[in-house]
Structures are given as C-alpha cells and as structure tokens.
Design a protein around this nucleic acid. Structure first.
Ligand SMILES: [Zn+2]
Ligand SMILES: [Zn+2]
Ligand SMILES: [Zn+2]
Ligand SMILES: [Zn+2]
Lengths: 132, 132
DNA sequence: ATAACGTTTGTTATAATATAACACTTTTTA
DNA sequence: TAAAAAGTGTTATATTATAACAAACGTTAT
C-alpha cells in the first residue's frame, strides 16, 4: 500500500539530494554523494528511488536515466508527466500545463486501449543556451 | 549527413530482425540473434541502431530500453513519436494520430523554449490482456 | 587511377545502469 | 505481544552502453 507521506531515513536522504540539485541526478552520482552518510550500495539508492517514484515525490527522466524532484503537484502520483529537456545543457523542467495534461489524459487509442498513465518528453535548446 | 536510404550490411541485418519481431527488441537480444551472421560485439549492434534511429527506420522505447521498427512514416525522422505500451504483455504500438501530432508539435513552453522533438509514451493494459 | 576523405567494420576492453538474493532490524497492525 | 509489512545492509551479478584503435570500403576530386 502507498503509505501517507512519512519517509524512511534512506528515502529522506535521497530525496533531499534530488531536491537540492539544480538538474537531474543519476543514481550513481546520488550514491557517491551519500557515501559519507553511510549508504554504500546501489541497491539502497535504487530502493529509495523506487519508493519515491511510487509516492510521486520524484520522476525518472527516461531518456536520460536520471531523476528529478516533482515540482508540480498536478501530476498526482506520476500518472501524467511532461518534461522539457535542453539538449545542450541537460536542463530539465517539469511542464505543468492543465490543458496539455487534460488533453493527454483524455486521449485514448483507437485500438481499444485505455491509458492509465503517460510520460511526455520534449527536446530543444533552452533560452539560456540559445544566447551563447 | 543523413544519407538517402542505402543501408550497410550490418544496418540491414539489424533492421530485418527488428522488422520481423512481434514486439520491441533489446540490443543484446538482437546481438544473440545475429551471431550466426558473424556479428559478435555489442558495438556493432549499437552502431547500427544509432544509424537506423537517425534515419527514422526504428525508434527507441525509452522506458524499456528496446527498439521497434517505424510503422508510421508520419514521424518524419523521429521528430514526433508516440507509443502505446501494454504493462502486462509488453506490446508496443506506434500511435499515428495527426491531431495529436499537430497538437504536440505546436506546443511550446512558457519559458521560451522552442521544441524540436518530442517522445510520448502511454501505458495501460491492452485489449487482449484485459480479456484474460 | 589514385589520393584523400568519410563511413563502416571488427575487435578488445571497460564503463554505466540496474537487479537478485539473503540475513537482519524496525515499524505497523491486529 | 505476536505477526505481518516495510526497510536496511551487504555481496554478487546481470544488463545496457561506450571508448579506443586498426583495418577495409566507398565516394569523389584531382
Ligand atoms: Zn511531478
Ligand atoms: Zn540549455
Ligand atoms: Zn515512426
Ligand atoms: Zn497486453
């Protein structure tokens, strides 16, 4: 069962690091960052990541195998996620657009499949990178 | 430069296997399938996959680290891809919906980012799996 | 035709990402 | 307070992907 919101020690440590980060973090870079805190093995990271994803606290950016904190609260338990990704600086921004979210949540496949969840990733060059 | 459409030997071998497959294929499963044809190393598979993706002949299903042949021809050189994925049987179906594609291609981020490309993955249980 | 160039190939090695399995502790629930 | 569920620590291993180098092939331009 998805519990309320109390995080275990390891989950809290991992979430803190992801929330403080400026951009998406990879599992092993999280691992290296928490070795001083007594977490030594990939399993401990991946277990925390799995639970945090389940709880909707973080999302996985599939095209990058990296993780970001949820900023949106619209994406209830990660059923409807959308991201904007800069191909130059690797920046990731969670898109929180009600119209988009509604449009996609209501989309159903011709072939009779009812969707429970979607993930959308947009790619481009961000404003900041364009200036350079 | 993206060449016209002539495929090299290895590219053709890899594409044939992906096209014949009923579902998405993983890189190493492709590798095991072509060892009789004299392809022995992951590099040879990944190089072919990279080029085939560039040419728009195949797509990568990011959430599964697997590859499918393009059935759509709408997604010109993979700038706009959408898939329907069954969480039970792993089936993947490329979605070719002009309205959806136009809607998303026209979508631009508030924060001034112009998108060049997107990838959308829907998840659910397919018709066939629901019957069971 | 041949030199120069870009692309593809074959190969060995290694990096990066992720899960299995087992023993144990802590927290929650009945 | 006993049982069940969730979390932890650990070792080992599986899976996915890239680096680096040398050779062959296919164009095209003198
Ligand atoms: Zn979110
Ligand atoms: Zn950028
Ligand atoms: Zn396609
Ligand atoms: Zn199915």
């Amino acid at each position: 069962m998805a519990q309320a919101q109390t995080l275990s020690r390891n989950q809290q440590i991992v979430l803190n690091i992801i929330e403080k980060a400026k951009g998406p973090l990879k599992a092993y870079s999280i691992l290296f960052n928490v070795q001083k805190k007594g977490i030594n093995a990939p399993q401990q990271i991946y277990r925390a990541l799995d639970k945090l994803i389940e709880m909707g606290k973080i999302h996985k950016i599939e095209s990058k195998n990296a993780f970001v904190a949820c900023r949106s609260s619209d994406c209830e338990i990660s059923k409807a996620t959308a991201f904007s990704i800069c191909e130059s600086c690797e920046m990731v921004d969670e898109i929180s657009d009600t119209k988009l979210s509604k449009y996609l949540s209501g989309f159903n496949h011709k072939k009779g499949m009812k969707f429970k969840r979607f993930n959308l990733e947009f790619f481009g060059i961000c404003k900041k990178c364009k200036k350079d």
